[in-house]
Computed example of a mutant assay.
Amino acid sequence: MDTGLSVDEIYQILEGEIVSLEIKPGEMLSENTLCKRFSISRTPVRSALQRLEQNRFVQIIPHKGTIVTPINLHIANQLIYQRVAVESMVFRDFVKVCTPPEAEQARYRLRMLEEAGAKRHEPGPFDINDFLHRDLAMHEIWFRSTDKMYLWEQLIKPDADYSRFIRLDIVGARNVPDVLENHQEMMQIIDTKNLDAIEPLMMQHLYGGIRRLGGKIFSDEYREYFE
């Protein structure tokens, strides 16, 4: 029976599962399996897969099938570079004109992030998406306050390489102590208006995944995840 799901809905579900690493790099996606899963005909499934290919999440190989692409570390690294450049400028502009209410809003977002981070000590799996959402919520404040939301929306748009690399860094909550410390330092910069500290901190914060994962990128654990 046809569930009535649109191509866009199927795309969003599959993109979300690929970005969150529920569907891992190198896995095959079967049209037949997806048709059964979504109780839908082949045409919308095929359209969704073609769109995923256009956005570099999968590769459709004729006579073989659809395979989830590996993470291109070179592209992820360039997007980190871009974000350091853009966010350093936006955060600088924010710190210069930040009002007391805006500072308190940032402090509140920091507390929310700290609460999420503390849950890594609790039994059960750590909620990666909740932690990342609260992380981004603090950064969004300076983009919104400086009227740079178009830039922000471009930076956080799901990307086949950068989005998956970020989540790989969060797996097992290994990045939580560093991320919390970095955000606490951002709050100190807002309070003290120490503009000279901005770019070094953004470099440390946004390149943190490269530093933390290090040689693991080339280890047996993750070798097949990367090109």
Rank of each mutant, 00 (worst) to 15 (best):
P200V: 04
F38R: 01
L113W: 02
D220T: 12
E53C: 00
R174T: 10
T192L: 02
P177N: 07
P123W: 10
I23S: 00
E115P: 05
M112D: 14
M203N: 14
H74D: 15
M149L: 13
V7E: 14
E153T: 12
E199T: 13
T192V: 08
R111D: 12
K64Y: 14
D130M: 10
G16P: 01
R107E: 15
E227I: 11
L5C: 10
R120Q: 08
A48N: 07
P25T: 00
I198L: 05
L79M: 15
M202E: 02
F91A: 02
M203R: 00
N32Y: 08
S6G: 11
T33K: 14
L113H: 09
I189P: 02
F165C: 02
M28G: 01
D196T: 02
I60C: 09
E140L: 11
G117W: 13
E221V: 04
L79P: 04
I198R: 03
K24V: 05
L113Q: 10
L5R: 02
D127G: 06
Q154F: 08
E102G: 09
V86Q: 13
M112P: 09
R42D: 05
E9H: 07
I71L: 10
E31Y: 11
M202P: 00
R223E: 12
D147H: 14
Q204F: 01
I141Q: 07
R92I: 06
L201E: 01
N32S: 01
R212H: 10
G209V: 00
L206I: 10
Q59M: 14
D169I: 02
M149F: 12
G4W: 07
I67P: 02
L34R: 00
S41R: 06
N182V: 03
L201M: 07
T69W: 04
E102Y: 01
Q50Y: 08
R134A: 04
S30Q: 07
S47F: 06
R223A: 11
Q59K: 14
E15N: 08
E17R: 15
I166V: 15
C98E: 09
M138C: 05
D159V: 00
G172L: 05
E104I: 05
N129G: 11
V179Q: 03
W142R: 07
E15R: 10
V19L: 07
W152D: 06
I156Y: 07
N55H: 08
R120G: 04
M203C: 11
P25H: 01
R134T: 11
V68F: 03
L79K: 10
Q184M: 03
S30T: 05
E15S: 06
H121S: 13
D191V: 09
Y81V: 14
A118G: 13
Y225C: 06
F143K: 00
